[in-house]
């Protein structure tokens, strides 16, 4: 299963003055520290809550130089909802303990096709568990590459909706109907499934924030396992 599909090119966009003078960030590395914070934030958003139990698998350069770059603390800081410029990042492991978050680190090998700065996150709260694989692809930019073994891709640069649902006819029709109802413009969408008629994860990226009522309406359908709004990552 090609979890590390590198076919998706990074979005070509205009360079802003604040890409060059910025971001404001806690060091030492935009990829190993700031990017790691953002991966943690995305993991938290995909779970939909602050996790109580966390297993973080560090791959490649994250495993090798992560400690010196504070990658471990940065990932946990993101799981605690901190931004890349939060001065508490350095103390995040202690703050996680105080917050009742149990964190375990592992060195993992995600295969030679995996980006060198990759992390696998198993995040749990109550009954809910998600497994997320993401990579920090440079300059603080990140990409989620798999959720619950499904090879899905999104960057957090847009407002994103994830829907894990039974793979059956008409589901996209219902979802896009809700988008229309809320006057939301879809910038990108993609469906990933493991096998025909099984379960699929659908990704929608929009220009404007996705309202909670839309997510709640989706979760009321019996064919939806879960739906999550992933807010756009802030640029500090």
């Amino acid at each position: 299963m090609p979890i590390f599909d590198t076919a998706m090119p990074p979005a070509k966009r205009q360079i802003s003055a604040f890409d060059i003078i910025g971001p404001i960030m806690v060091g030492p590395s935009s990829s190993h520290t700031a990017g790691a914070v953002r991966l943690g934030r995305l993991g938290r958003a995909i779970l939909g809550a602050q996790p109580e139990r966390v297993i973080l698998g560090l791959h490649g350069s994250f495993a090798r130089t992560g400690r010196g770059h504070g990658t471990d603390r940065a990932l946990v800081a993101g799981l605690l909802d901190m931004e890349t410029s939060d001065p508490r990042i350095r103390q995040s492991l202690e703050l996680a303990r105080d917050a009742g978050m149990d964190v375990v680190f592992r060195i993992v090998d995600l295969g030679e096709d995996a980006h060198p700065n990759s992390v696998s996150m198993v995040l749990e709260t109550g009954e809910r568990v998600v497994k997320v694989i993401g990579a920090s692809i440079g300059g603080g930019m990140v990409e989620i590459q798999a959720v619950d073994e499904y090879p899905i891709h999104f960057t957090g640069e847009q407002e994103t909706l994830l829907v894990a649902a039974e793979d059956r006819p008409g589901t996209i029709h219902v979802i896009t109907g809700l988008f229309l109802h809320h006057r939301l413009n879809i910038a990108f969408s993609r469906v990933e499934r493991k096998q025909r008629g099984g379960e699929a994860i659908q990704v929608f990226e929009t220009d404007d924030p996705i309202p909670d009522v839309l997510v709640e309406a989706l979760e009321d359908y019996d064919w939806v396992r879960w739906a999550r709004h992933i807010p756009r990552l802030a640029h500090s």
């Binding site: 060059i20 003078i21 910025g22 806690v26 060091g27 030492p28 410029s85 001065p87 990042i89 603080g140």
Partner: peptide, 9 residues
């Protein structure tokens, strides 16, 4: 490198 806050420039 001490994990303080800076502006990447």
């Amino acid at each position: 490198s001490g994990m303080g806050c800076i502006v990447a420039t």
